[in-house]
Design a protein around this nucleic acid. Structure first.
Lengths: 202, 202
DNA sequence: CGTCAGTTTTACCAATTGGTCAAATACAAT
DNA sequence: ATTGTATTTGACCAATTGGTAAAACTGACG
């Protein structure tokens, strides 16, 4: 087992290297498709050495998922129920798009986990995540009732924002191939802003 | 090697069973994560028997991808440049959503392939797919120029429709967990129709 | 210098994986 | 019934996989 917190500098460094290598592997090949040998090599150490820091493949994967879920929902929590509806929703979409741009591997790790049926985080989805979405949905429903945004299904609006923004990380290869160039996040931001504004402004 | 076309009834049946089992496995675990043993068991035959019909793991995967790409783009081709813009675009989105509902495994297979960097279909993406999107983009750009839909980046609009609709297949577990129930495609259709209409109608 | 926890390496293992081969069996046409 | 082809099986294999055990090394501190 892994001690709850790393102590020495070398532990901090090596655990970070392993998690980074694991993120590479798991986000690209999924849990079963990634191998410890591959992770160890990317991390620049031998497999037994890697296993000195993490109890096993599961431990690396679990650590990555926990670390991810911790920060993944923050943008949603930042929505201000007392703010301007369109500004708040567009701001949330922009923050999610920023996450796709800055943490594409994390986005793909999450996508892989969901694609595989979310075996490791199913309880999180129907627990914490559902509760948070339920809260925000009430706010959005109120905004719609007050006529400050167009009528909309709050939960499906949230799904839409998730899909629209995560797509640019998860399907990066396809987006790049179709566009013929790589730096598309600014254009995506303009497009999503304009499109969502059109969909929301009464 | 596999003969180009199956001949006997038993070949047709067994090849279909293998492809179906392979679709289960590959869509859930990706190429590397799926195993021949697993596919053979699901298909109800021994591994050597399976390998009598397909040259190897790659052959099954490739056959699935080709079969998929063949039909995946059809909805896009059905867009009528001379039709009503909003009707055509909303109709396309609806057809894509129908695909997500009726062929979720195929959608996940595609998502897995892209997540892994599209090693098997990269040339298809920057070839056929790009060419087709380029064509449609011209039509959409004209519609926008003529003021028949709001100003929009045509290619990013297509990405948006892809992400919005495929999300309901690829992230099914998450959608179900957050909603608390499973039959959501009718609601999704209403939501997407309303949202896209708001984003497009001038 | 010696010591001792912290770290790394070498050698290894059992299970799984993709795949082969030849023998055995089912089946269709004569 | 017999023959030739299509199909299936059982035995097997080399490579890879996740993981272990113990020896060897490192470096800070008394």
């Amino acid at each position: 087992m892994t001690s709850s917190r790393p102590r020495t500098r070398i532990q901090i460094k090596n655990r970070a290297a392993i998690l980074d290598a694991g993120l590479d592997a798991f986000s690209a090949h999924g849990f079963r498709g990634a191998t410890l040998d591959q992770i160890a090599e990317t991390a620049g150490m031998s497999k037994p050495n890697l296993l000195y820091y993490f109890g096993g493949k599961d431990a690396i994967y679990t650590a990555l998922l926990e670390q991810l879920l911790d920060t993944w929902l923050d943008p949603l929590r930042e929505i201000d129920p007392d703010g301007d509806p369109v500004t708040e929703i567009l701001g949330y979409a922009q923050r999610k798009l920023d996450l796709s741009r800055d943490y594409p591997r994390e986005s793909r790790l999450f996508a892989n986990e969901i694609l595989q049926g979310a075996p490791h985080i199913h309880s999180h989805l129907s627990g914490d995540l559902k509760a948070l979405v339920d809260d925000i949905a009430i706010v959005i429903a109120r905004w719609a009732d007050e006529g400050r945004i167009k009528a909309v299904d709050p939960r499906h609006l949230i799904f839409s924002i998730w899909s629209l923004t995560q797509h640019y990380a998860d399907f990066e290869v396809q987006v790049t191939a179709v566009l013929g160039h790589a730096a598309y996040f600014d254009d995506a931001a303009i497009h999503l802003n304009r499109m969502l504004r059109g969909a929301l402004e009464p």
